Simulated assay, not measured.
Amino acid sequence: MAASKATVGVLSIGQMGFGIAQLLLAHGFHVVTNVSDRSTATQKRAKSASIECVSSDLELVMFLDGGIIGGPPSPTPGSTDWKRPGIPTSGPHPLSDAPIAGPQLADVLNTRHLDGKIGTASGLKCTFAALSKGFTALALQSFTTAASLGVLPQLQDYIEQYNPTLKARAEKGITGCPPKAYRWVEEMNQIGQCFEVEGGWPDSANVFRNVASVYEQLAVAVEERGGSEGMEELPGALLALTKSLKDGQKE
């Protein structure tokens, strides 16, 4: 008699959530999600991938805190291995203790249980995202300002000369974030709240509310273009954001 498959709920079935779902399905888990408030295309994509669709988020929730650090899972070409993000978790019930395939699930998802408190894992995610996405926001402001001044090539030359790793990271961040900008707005606000309450930075944490406004402006630029097409290359991304900023100043 075949062993029962553990059921895993994916709360949001966007790019990251769908990648996690595919990883789980590839390892024999049963995946459920709620797409009742998502687009028709998302609903069809979930159903075509053999993901069970439920009617509310309440059917997906477990008493468990966690965050995803890194990019969406993807299979390694020519191998059965997967490139996986890290998933720190916290709370009174470690995922590895789940009654059905808990250790296997914790391993497949590349989890690390931190402690028994709800909030610890989310806080770790905030501190990581503050560095990665905070840097990208600085790069967006720096590169668009240099472009407006007509010195972007010179800025790129100097960064290439004195810190080539920084140049690659900045350009990759700028071209990769336009389709995600609208989601990052609230995430930056949450980071500010975490740093204020947990980190003891009541005034300085406001910097992340300003970072949120950078991504809000980028989201506006994407919306004005009708999507992020053409922004996957550095000139297109900077041109769209610079135009949106200048149009906003005219209003």
Rank of each mutant, 00 (worst) to 15 (best):
G192W: 01
L234Y: 00
L245R: 09
A129T: 01
V61D: 13
L60M: 05
E233N: 08
S50E: 15
L23M: 03
T120L: 05
T42G: 12
G91N: 13
K246A: 09
R209Q: 03
L131W: 08
N189I: 07
G91T: 06
C177N: 15
Y162L: 14
C177H: 13
T42P: 06
Q15N: 05
K172P: 06
F63I: 15
C126T: 05
G227Q: 10
V222A: 04
T89F: 04
G176L: 07
S142A: 15
G14P: 03
D37M: 08
P75C: 08
T145I: 14
C126F: 01
E232W: 04
D203R: 10
G176T: 09
D247F: 02
L11G: 02
E187M: 04
Q43I: 02
E160H: 09
I174C: 02
R38C: 00
L131E: 11
S36V: 03
L138F: 12
R225C: 13
P178W: 15
T80K: 12
R84M: 08
M231G: 02
S132N: 14
R183Y: 00
T127R: 12
T127G: 12
Y162F: 09
P88N: 15
T136V: 08
V31H: 00
P94L: 08
P85L: 11
I68Q: 12
